[in-house]
């Protein structure tokens, strides 16, 4: 009878710790922080910057990587940021574009001040260096 409630609190305490100290969105993770803060999915976003010799470009998140980007924006831990960076690098290479590093930035929008306004605030940055740089496949 108590086990489900004990599990609920165990998960919720972990969620609170992750939200307070590791940038997990309070809306997610089983801690029931939804509708309590603007720090949710709609007010977080990801920036992708790809570098290579002669190339430095910001990419929009491709539809195929929406899921990976969503995870990284909701919980910008190294694991999810690296996964996304790796997927971007693989995709660039498949499409024949050079890539030596992928930078993933997780951002949120903070609403504050009088008059009220939104300001972008960087949560975390992760750079994946590819060594040796991935070259486009040769025909």
């Amino acid at each position: 009878m108590w086990l489900p409630t004990a599990l609920l609190f165990a998960v919720a305490v972990s969620q609170i710790v992750l939200a307070m100290f590791a940038n997990l969105s309070p809306w997610k993770g089983g801690g029931f922080g939804m509708f309590a803060t603007t720090d949710g999915t709609a007010y977080r976003f990801i920036r992708l910057i790809v570098d290579a010799p002669g190339r430095s470009e910001e990419l929009s998140v491709p539809a195929a990587l929406d899921e990976a980007a969503l995870r990284a924006q909701l919980f910008p831990a190294d694991y999810f940021l690296r996964q996304l960076a790796r997927a971007v690098a693989d995709r660039e290479q498949r499409q024949g574009r050079p890539v030596s590093s992928v930078r993933v930035e997780a951002w949120r929008i903070v609403y504050d001040g009088v008059p009220l306004r939104g300001t972008e605030q960087r949560l975390r940055t992760f750079t994946l260096h590819l060594s040796p740089p991935l070259e486009p496949p040769h025909e």
């Binding site: 609170i16 939200a19 309070p26 029931f32 922080g33 939804m34 509708f35 309590a36 803060t37 603007t38």
Partner: peptide
């Protein structure tokens, strides 16, 4: 839900 709204959330 109340804990988040009343104590943990800043906005």
């Amino acid at each position: 839900a109340v804990l988040w709204k009343a104590a943990l959330s800043t906005d």
